[in-house]
Design a protein around this nucleic acid. Sequence first.
DNA 1: GGTATTTGACCGTA
DNA 2: TACGGTCAAATACC
Length: 306
Amino acid sequence: METGHKRPLINELTQGKELAYQLKNHLDKTMSAQNCDFLVEKILSSYEKALSMLNWGTAFDEISPRTEVSDPADSPHRCNKNVFKKRKTMAKWSEQVKVCSGTMVEAPLSDGYSWRKYGQKDILGANHPRCTHRNFQGCLATKQVQRSDEDSSVFEVTYKGRHTCIQANQLSKALEKKPKKEEVEEEGMIQDSKPTQKMQYDDGFSFKVNKGMNTSEEGAFPSFSFPSTPIETEKLENLIYLGCDSTTFITLDHNLQSSDSDLSEMINSTQNSGENSPLVDWDLSLDYVDFDSNFHFDITDSEMFS
DNA sequence: GGTATTTGACCGTA
DNA sequence: TACGGTCAAATACC
């Protein structure tokens, strides 16, 4: 990796270490849960940034000579801005979320992160333009929103990159005192009115996202939550267990009309990779997807294969 | 005046 | 070379 990129990386890691020490010191003393949450999220944010930098470094290493880092003078638009020119490496961290917004047209935009629209593009063959949003907290994640041609109430939301920021709601919540019981309940009502969301990946299969914790439990990620979609009993029989950690389980719908070899390949690649994350080495790069471990999600959608 | 959005142009990828 | 992603100046909004 280039020396110039080590410094911010070291800074982030150092900051994470210091914050961890602070947290350790506070654990013995009287410290509110909110402050603990805040410190933890700061620590996580630091490590996320550091890891992103490492990923960039990897991307940098993979850049072909033709697309290698260019002299800033080469492009007036990229002076001191984007050091790395190859976009494909960033697109690697992508997930796609289909949102049946129903009456809540704004729903796709309110996922708890702070997004700023920075581009709109007419896509060939699409009736509606594609809007691109970027987090303005120095976060690497981007988000694309495009209204479906078939159903204008349906938005396709594509997330790219990994969040390195602290979720806006999360940050404010950490700084606030614990809300009153009524406020918590009200928040829960709002969340329950949100549409069911489906995560669909470019590789051809999709997830239903099932929030496995109730509103009062979710804590750290209050607004990026989806209504709980109970798995039907008969569907459970068709689910192939892919893996889990303490709070997340991942299953693959056995009804998927992909070949058995494809299935086994996916499962093998899943189970053979990583100790903690069941999806670490998937080609669709779920290791980079910003899943919150508080979410339960299962692969139950077979539309893409029909 | 500060912030957010729009939009035309540039650039990378396929 | 066409298409899509991104940038940044221009514009709108508060």
